[in-house]
Amino acid sequence: MEITMRSLWTLIHGMGFGALYLLACSGALVELYRRYCTHNQALPTERDEKFLRIYLTAMAALAWLAVLTGAYIIYPWYRAAPPPGTANLAAFPQRLLMASPTTSGWHSIGMEWKEHIAWIVPISITMAAAVALQYGRDLKNHPQLRAAVLVFVWTSLLAAGVAGFFGAMINKNAPVDGGPVIHIVQGEQK
C-alpha cells in the first residue's frame, strides 16, 4: 500500500482540513442554535463559553489551513503547464480536464468557482470566532450579532460544501498525483 506525495497533500487538504471543517460546521451550528435560538434563558457557563471560543477558533484555523494548502501547495500542481508536445496529460490535471468537452466544465465552472468561493469560508468563520472571543457570554444580550454570526456560519458551510464537492469531483476526473512514493504498509503476497 503506497501513496504519492501529491496524493497525500490532496488528502490532507480535502479530508484533513476540508471535510473536518464541514463536520465541525454542523457541530457549531447545532451548538449556536441550542445555545441562542431556543427558549433557554440561562446564561452559558464559563466552561461552555470557553469551549465555544476554542471550537470556533479551531474552525477558523482549519479553514485557513484548507485554503492555504489548496492555493499554495495543490493548485500549482493542478495548473502546471505541460512541456510542448506532451501527449500524456495525466500529470497535468487542468490540461487533462480542458482537453475534452465532456470534462472541461469541471475546470471552467468547478475549479473556477471553487478557487474563489472557498476563501469566503475563512473570512466568515474568522468573523464568527472574533465575535465569540470578543463578546463571550455577553452575546446572549445581542440577538442581532448572534443572527449575523449564524448567517455567516451557514454561509461558510454552503461555501465549503461547494468547494468540497468540486474538489472531490475534479480529483476524481483528473487526480493530482505524482511526486515521491510513500510506502505505507506491505501487503500480503498471494
Binding site: 473570512i123 466568515s124 465575535v131 470578543q134 445581542h142
Partner: peptide, 12 residues
C-alpha cells in the same frame, strides 16, 4: 461585532 460583520461582508 458590527465592524467584524460588515468587514466580513466586504471581504466576501
Amino acid at each position: 461585532g458590527a465592524a467584524a460583520i460588515l468587514a466580513a461582508g466586504v471581504g466576501a
